[in-house]
């Protein structure tokens, strides 16, 4: 039994280890290890395409995380007061948006938005004052952020709702009985209790968005996120540079997960 567990853990971690090891390759060919060096990290970091893609991914992931934790928390708080048909409707939406394949979301969003933009752009051009350049709607930051947020927002709702369900209701009633305003009750009683779930939601949303390939692939327009860049470089051929970028992406996610774990610990031990 123990040997089996060791084998599975090796199965999980050896491939990651191989990527990391080969990213320090001194040779020029991806699959022949010839001494160790950090030259490919230098190459990757000085590659302007990698830098641009990284910044794009960062902007998208941060916006997604902020939007989904705000909207998701608001919705979770409102939904606990609701019953009946509206509640069932929302539950259905949350369920569908989590379950539907990312590829279908990507395609449907692309097709719908491009169609709307094609209708709106001539309209905008016709009502725009003569001589100034009319704005042209197109796929880009807004569409990726919106498409990612659909999934992550539902994720935050689920997380925060689970936390609210496990919350001590007596504290809220006590606060109300002591004539605290609803805002104060929220700020001083509810928020501290659901805070870990919101934080976890924020970080999971960030990681999801930062690592997502398939949705961005369809709706990012001319913008290249880091996963899109990695995907197209792999298509062009395997180089040690891809290994170095991959290692950095893995390290970034790990760092984020560890921060989340640490913050949650800190919070609960206080």
């Amino acid at each position: 039994m123990r040997i089996y567990a060791i084998v599975v853990f090796l199965f999980l971690y050896v491939p990651i280890g191989i990527i990391v090891l080969f990213s320090f390759n001194a040779g020029r060919h991806a699959s022949e290890l010839r001494g160790l060096s950090v030259q490919w990290y230098g190459k990757a970091l000085s590659n302007p395409f990698v830098g641009d893609a990284f910044v794009t991914s960062l902007i998208v992931a941060l916006s997604v995380a902020v939007l989904s934790s705000l909207m998701g928390t608001a919705a979770a708080l409102a939904l606990q007061r609701l019953k009946g048909k509206i509640r069932i409707l929302f539950d259905g939406m949350i369920y569908v948006s989590v379950m539907i394949p990312g590829i279908v979301i990507g395609i449907a969003t692309l097709v719908a938005l491009v169609t709307v933009f094609d209708l709106l752009n001539p309209l905008l051009a016709s009502i725009w004052p003569e001589g100034t350049k009319p704005p042209k709607l197109h796929m880009g930051y807004a569409s990726v952020i919106a498409a990612h947020t659909l999934f992550t927002m539902s994720l935050v709702i689920i997380l925060v709702r689970a936390r609210i369900a496990g919350m001590d209701r007596a504290l809220i009633e006590a606060s109300m009985d002591l004539y605290a305003t609803p805002w104060r009750t929220f700020y001083q009683v509810t928020l501290p209790q659901i805070y870990p779930a919101i934080l976890a939601g924020f970080l999971l949303s960030f990681t999801f968005s930062f690592d997502d390939f398939i949705i961005s692939f369809f709706v990012a327009g001319a913008n290249t996120t880091l996963p899109i860049y990695i995907f197209s470089s792999i298509r062009r051929g395997i180089t040690p540079e891809v290994n170095a970028i991959g290692t950095m992406v893995l390290a970034a996610s790990l760092l984020l997960l560890m921060t989340a774990q640490f913050l949650l610990r800190e919070r609960s031990s206080r």
Binding site: I16, L204, D211, G246, S253
Partner: peptide
């Protein structure tokens, strides 16, 4: 929670 893209690439 790390990139499926990079892990599959491995």
């Amino acid at each position: 929670w790390t990139s499926l893209l990079v892990r599959t690439y491995a």
